[in-house]
Design a protein around this nucleic acid. Structure first.
Lengths: 345, 345
DNA sequence: GCGGCCGATGTGACCGTGCACATATCGGTG
DNA sequence: CACCGATATGTGCACGGTCACATCGGCCGC
């Protein structure tokens, strides 16, 4: 642990002004000042103005700690994030969460899980709880996280995003439906031998996409092989692609995200083959770069920003018309580009 | 503004235990409990153990607001981020900042700027200051941010990252050196007509990279054209590429980041040309996907994670050997891949 | 044997704010 | 003009920690 050095520039007075200082200067009681701060209705306009003026003059800033102490409301929500938070999707959602929270007058504090061990989750969770956050958005929808949260008996409301599990604490894109769209697209193009490159086993969203894939395949009576479990990275996609292409027993691959799809395309090319001529590829997420891949990637778009906003809305119990809320609210959308075509044989 | 609903599960008792509750249960004074919390040296081992046990039993959690109130140390640092925070680089750094801060016992709160207007910066800054953060990391190195910070007379220490300006509040990768490496690489391959696709005008790092480009060109006595100012996005890279290629008066482009480079390559292909045969491209950042682009992208790698760590270290005044610190500490590294070759004519 | 010192612990005040309650002020009413 | 209720403002206390200082033994040295 280390200490933060003193203020940067100004040789500030030893103590910042508080409401009593303001009160004295304005010739009112501290309570009146407090009322001004909290927009209390029964306060005379003239008084209010005078107080506000003094505040301005004294550079008064309310002390959040004091307020939190007495109200026991921290006005802070926490984000529990996986290391994957540097990816486009999660990062976008986090941004949206922060914005939505701020708009609602809340602060946001973030903690990353260092690993997917129970201890890593616990540490991060403790870190958040210890600042008495009023709610938590879990953005690392790994199954284990649920267990840890319930095991710890966290007494804080929480929401997880991007999963479609049976938990009530969930805001999600319809991952399963999106995966079915992607799969159906390949089938409609005539593919019958389709692989699925899935995300990590313990990610709920990976599981949902896999489930969607299997559902659609089975609905169309097409036999499937076991999905490959990846780690979301382009590197993994490349290695998996090289491996798979040793036996060319497929004509299309549905990848669980765009990065892995990019790796697959790379592998296809390095094997002297062509996408989409020899192998069609569909991704998932529609990251902004996907349209500029070669070939431009057919993928499933999800609205990460909306997702983040909804998380906060749900956490704050502020969804405009609660009865109408569609739990699977945000639908995914297929974006067809150049990486898919009919099979060449 | 909305209120957060009550605790999720447990019908918790009206009040959480405080140090006096613990003290009573352990048969000591509240101050002794406080000493245990703060690892005070002169406390008997037996007493300490007893207190700790009671804490465990009562599920005691120290109240951060109370501690902050009395010590006036919030143990929180703020991150002031641009919307670009969803990009790989900034997101990685933010993750590293959060981890480093937590390791040092600090909490992290993040605020995004909604726009680059003064008001947007001010709002975000106020949001951070109002929670009495002890320090701020600015991760949106736009020049205007500096102005606003100094104008507001923010009395909080701050550090900005990814700029190499003359400000003392800076931790940076050697952007300029990296840009020179990239440019020199193109020159060494024989290119003489080289364009630069820069980042937004008001970004310090964009400026630095541009400066590096111009420096190297001038050092080698090669005439330059005015750089194009982009917005970091692949989309812009694509549009700029299409535009530029109407006059093929160049054989190479140095792009200020990898995303725009991707868009350029896409444009080159759409014009029926080939990268690197007709045009060589160099990017900047080395995002994880760059190795899997087609062609794999020659680019300049910077260590975002280390950057984030150093920001926190600097902010906490914890750099191990202050005298030895190299302000330009983190060097950038050229990664040569397939997108560069000699000019074809 | 006694003063002094040190380690271990206790006592009370205080940090800045909001809440419950008390009090003043004012206009209208019978 | 006494009385009522509503509006506007003031008074003390509580929140849960930490800090400064007081207290209390025991041990040491002369």
């Amino acid at each position: 642990m280390t200490e933060l050095s003193g203020a940067a520039d100004s040789a500030s007075p030893p103590r910042a002004p508080n409401i009593r200082d303001v009160a004295k200067a304005a010739g009112v009681s501290h309570q009146t000042v407090s009322r001004v701060l909290n927009d209390h209705p029964s306060i005379r306009e003239a008084t209010k103005e005078r107080v506000l003026q003094v505040m301005e003059q004294l550079q008064y800033r309310p002390n959040r700690a004091a307020r939190t102490l007495v109200t026991s409301k921290s006005r802070t929500i926490g984000i529990l994030a996986a290391t994957s938070a540097s990816h486009y999707g999660p990062a976008s959602s986090i941004g949206a969460i922060q914005d939505a929270a701020r708009e609602a007058g809340y602060y946001v504090s973030t903690a990353n899980m260092h690993n997917t061990e129970t201890s890593g989750i616990q540490d991060a969770l403790n870190h958040l709880v210890s600042q008495s956050v009023e709610g938590i958005v879990v953005i690392a929808p790994q199954k284990r996280v649920f267990d840890v949260i319930s095991e710890l008996q966290v007494s804080v409301p929480y929401v997880t995003m991007q999963s479609s599990s049976d938990s009530p604490h969930t805001v999600s894109v319809d991952q399963r439906g999106g995966a079915r769209l992607a799969t159906r697209h390949l089938i409609e193009r005539g593919h019958r031998m389709i692989y699925h490159l899935a995300g990590p086993q313990d990610w709920i969203e990976a599981e949902e996409r896999m489930a969607g894939f299997l559902e659609e395949m089975s609905a169309q009576d097409i036999p499937t092989t076991a999905p490959i479990l990846g780690d979301w990275s382009a590197d993994f996609g490349y290695r998996a692609g090289r491996e798979l292409l040793r036996f060319r027993d497929f004509t299309a691959i549905f990848s669980s995200n765009d990065q892995m799809a990019l790796g697959l395309i790379h592998a296809i090319r390095d094997e002297g083959l062509d996408c989409p001529r020899d192998v069609s590829i569909v991704g998932f997420d529609d990251i902004p770069e996907a349209a500029h891949f070669w070939p431009p990637l057919t993928t499933v778009r999800q609205d990460f920003t909306e997702l983040g906003r909804r998380c906060v809305a749900q956490l704050l119990g502020n969804i405009s018309e609660p009865e109408v809320v569609n739990i699977e609210g945000i639908t995914a959308e297929l974006v067809v580009r150049g990486s898919t075509a009919g099979p060449s044989f």
